[in-house]
């Protein structure tokens, strides 16, 4: 399995082929449409990360020491970006996720979507992803404080 940074670099590489914002967003929108990201059973209030503009649902589980994230959004662009975040972070160990430095969004010109002024739920989602990783990390190391 590729490391978090290898995946980020691959995405940066893919995005370097887009000529303008249209192509880039077309791609993100397609990503958003193609990915059925979360089971209907998790699309409930319990898993809702509330942004004020778009809603995000996030579910995490630990499988063989790796964190599996599933998420969804009611806004398609948000959902496409979630697809990218999940591609980068899902399937890695809690420690790797905690240590991850997400530089790819900046490099592909989508950092604005992680600005709190957008209130799209992505900032809260990332925070929540790290919190899940932290909780799983404690579970794995048997610490219970």
């Amino acid at each position: 399995m590729e490391s978090i940074n290898e995946i980020q670099d691959a995405i940066i590489d893919e995005f370097s082929f887009f000529g303008d914002w249209m192509e880039k967003y077309e791609y993100i929108i397609e990503l958003g449409k193609d990915l059925p990201l979360i089971d209907a059973q998790y699309k409930t209030e319990d898993y809702l990360v509330r942004g004020c503009q778009s809603k995000v649902w996030l579910h995490a589980s630990l499988e063989d020491g790796k964190v599996i994230f599933k998420a969804d959004s009611d806004a398609i662009i948000t959902k496409g970006i979630i697809g990218l975040l999940i591609r980068v972070l899902s399937g890695h160990s809690p420690q790797d996720i905690l240590d991850a430095d997400l530089y790819f969004l900046d490099k592909i010109g989508l950092k604005e979507h992680l600005s709190p002024t957008r209130a799209n739920g992505l900032v809260s989602m990332l925070k929540q992803m790290k919190l899940y990783a932290l909780a799983f990390q404690k579970q794995l190391t048997g610490k219970n404080d």
């Binding site: 249209m22 967003y25 503009q53 778009s54 806004a75 662009i77 948000t78 799209n120």
Partner: peptide, 11 residues
Amino acid sequence: HPYDLGTLLDK
């Protein structure tokens, strides 16, 4: 979704 429309209009 309004958010998607707003994002693209901004572009």
